[in-house]
Computed example of a mutant assay.
Amino acid sequence: MPKVLNNIKQLADANSPIDMTRTMAPDVPSFREYIIEGLGQIAALPELSGIVQRHRFHGSTQDKAVAAQWLGRRLGSAPDPPRLLLTGGTQNILMILFSRLVPKGSVIAAEKLTYAAIGQLAMLAGVSVLPVDIDSDGLRADALEEICRSHRVAVAYTNPTNHNPTTSIMSTERRQSIADVARRYGVALIEDDVHGFITKHAPPPIATIAPELTWYMMTVSKCLGIGLRAAYLVAPNADKLAQLLACIPSVSTWFVPGLSAALITNLIETGAAEEIARSISVEVGLRQAIAQEILGPLKGMHTNNSSLHVWLDLPHAWTIEDFVNAAAKAGVTLRHPNVFAVPGTEVKSNIRLSLVAPARHSDLREGLFRIAGLLQSRL
């Protein structure tokens, strides 16, 4: 890049707001090389035209066999391939599950603070979501039981490992209690293990405790890359999966893109997927250390060393709206936390800060220093 243009770009970067909204897999060493190598190997395959020009449906026999072994790292053992689908992403899975598993008059139960798309997907599926209280250990089993007693709960959605947005990691004991409640009331569980592969010392999924009830989801968006638009679904058993698919065999919106499927399978087979996920985990740890250095002394920061974000208690002198607006004036873009609130719930004193949205450590530091300055101004 010519020097003049490079100087202009640096000036534009310096004046651009620091985005701390979205969470995604951060760039890590060797990622580009792994992707280039994988794509090169796929391009040399004799079946390349078919990969690009034909439906991959829910993954080839090879995709499922390779994925089963990979998912077995989280599930304790490889699930039978007939229980497994490779799909076009978590939201596609949720849309289908909400539509097919929740009969008319029944509801979905979910953590009162949860993945931002849950309410929107439930609305599109024509079903209601009820908020379940949470604590520092995640979804409360007693609160889930209370809702199951008073409502026709068909499905409970939970994100127990590195919960979005609070960063809690549910204990094994709590996971067992959630499974016990689901069994008592015949409630299906949808377990979103999106952070499972990048969370250090993550407890085994609920799917290992109650496999007969659990629809287990693992996306590659955090451990490889969101642009692959792919996620795995492991059903309780092959029959339930067949029943799910029976009425919607031609709904291609949740089919996996063929090139993405081929690349993911290649990355798993070559060991690159494991190396990328490990590198992401290391990078997240470095960013968490920066957050602890700058925000830790101010107290009120909820996180762990594997979370892509932190969940921050705001001083009472700040309203969320004022803080978001003040951050914007200071050059930091934040997301209003009510996007994570299930209808009927309101966030009044917390904010989520993405540690991975800023591309560089220097940007992250600058953004956190600006946030720290705002916090200190009203302590």
Rank of each mutant, 00 (worst) to 15 (best):
T214I: 03
Y232T: 07
A156L: 05
R56S: 15
H195I: 03
R83G: 09
P343T: 13
K329H: 13
S99M: 11
P343K: 12
G50F: 01
A230P: 04
L312E: 03
D193M: 03
E111C: 12
M301S: 04
A25L: 00
G300W: 07
L263R: 02
S99E: 13
L245Y: 05
V282I: 08
R32Y: 03
E346M: 13
N338I: 06
P205I: 04
L130C: 08
A328Y: 08
F340C: 12
G227P: 03
I294E: 07
Q120D: 15
C247K: 08
I134R: 01
R149E: 12
V342D: 04
D13E: 15
I35M: 14
V132H: 03
A44N: 13
A110I: 02
I36E: 12
K200T: 14
A179H: 07
I169S: 02
L314Q: 07
P337L: 07
A210F: 04
D239A: 14
M20K: 05
E33Q: 14
F323C: 08
L144D: 01
G38N: 05
A359D: 05
V256I: 14
L94Y: 06
G88E: 02
A182L: 11
W318G: 06
I264V: 13
T214E: 04
E283P: 00
L113H: 03
P81H: 11
A341C: 15
D80R: 11
R54F: 06
A327W: 04
K64T: 06
G196D: 03
V187I: 14
W215R: 05
A210E: 11
L11H: 15
H58V: 01
D135N: 15
L267N: 00
Q120E: 15
L84A: 07
I268A: 02
V310Y: 02
P205F: 00
T166R: 04
I280K: 00
T114V: 14
S106F: 14
T61F: 05
W70E: 01
A210K: 11
T87G: 11
V220W: 00
A235F: 01
H58D: 08
P81V: 09
P165A: 13
R152W: 04
V66H: 02
I206G: 03
H195R: 13
K3P: 08
E111R: 04
W311K: 09
H163M: 10
A78N: 06
E212K: 07
I35D: 02
H336G: 10
Q10Y: 11
K348C: 12
